[in-house]
Simulated assay, not measured.
Amino acid sequence: MSNKATTTPQMKFVAAYLLAVLAGNPSPSAEDLSAILESVGCEIDNEKMELLLSQLSGKDITELIAAGREKFASVPCGGGGVAVAAAAPAAGGAAPAAEAKKEEKVEEKEESDDVRSLPLLL
């Protein structure tokens, strides 16, 4: 096992932290996270949980998420389809782009009609 695995908090602690914040607790404690994790049967590694809490101490979670989104936005995702769609109007004029948008709107409406006609399973 690598050294990084032993010093990085596991996602279950991050998820429990975010659940606590969403529930209205702006700075969850170890006890709060333990209660959440125990409620779903997770084993708790106090060392990793304390590491996460020390890394988040005094920080605003919304600012951390925003900073992470900015970093993630710079990661290439291989969206080749987007480049092709963007190049089409330049080569073929504006008319094909307008037709494509119109077709997308029609398809969305059809999908939403299908969802409403499904029987409820409650």
Rank of each mutant, 00 (worst) to 15 (best):
1 M>D: 10
1 M>H: 11
3 N>R: 15
3 N>T: 13
9 P>K: 06
13 F>Y: 15
15 A>S: 10
16 A>Q: 01
17 Y>F: 13
19 L>F: 09
21 V>S: 03
22 L>I: 01
22 L>Y: 06
23 A>N: 15
28 P>F: 00
28 P>H: 03
30 A>D: 12
34 S>I: 05
36 I>M: 02
38 E>F: 03
39 S>F: 06
42 C>N: 09
45 D>I: 01
46 N>V: 10
47 E>G: 03
51 L>S: 11
51 L>E: 08
54 S>W: 00
61 I>E: 00
62 T>M: 13
62 T>A: 09
63 E>S: 12
65 I>D: 04
65 I>Q: 07
66 A>E: 15
69 R>M: 14
71 K>R: 14
72 F>K: 07
74 S>A: 15
75 V>S: 01
75 V>T: 10
76 P>R: 05
79 G>Y: 04
81 G>V: 09
82 V>M: 14
83 A>L: 15
87 A>V: 13
89 P>L: 03
92 G>C: 13
93 G>W: 05
94 A>W: 08
95 A>V: 14
95 A>M: 12
96 P>K: 08
97 A>G: 02
99 E>R: 11
99 E>W: 01
99 E>Y: 02
100 A>H: 11
101 K>S: 05
104 E>W: 01
105 K>E: 05
106 V>T: 06
108 E>C: 02
113 D>V: 09
119 P>Y: 05
121 L>F: 11
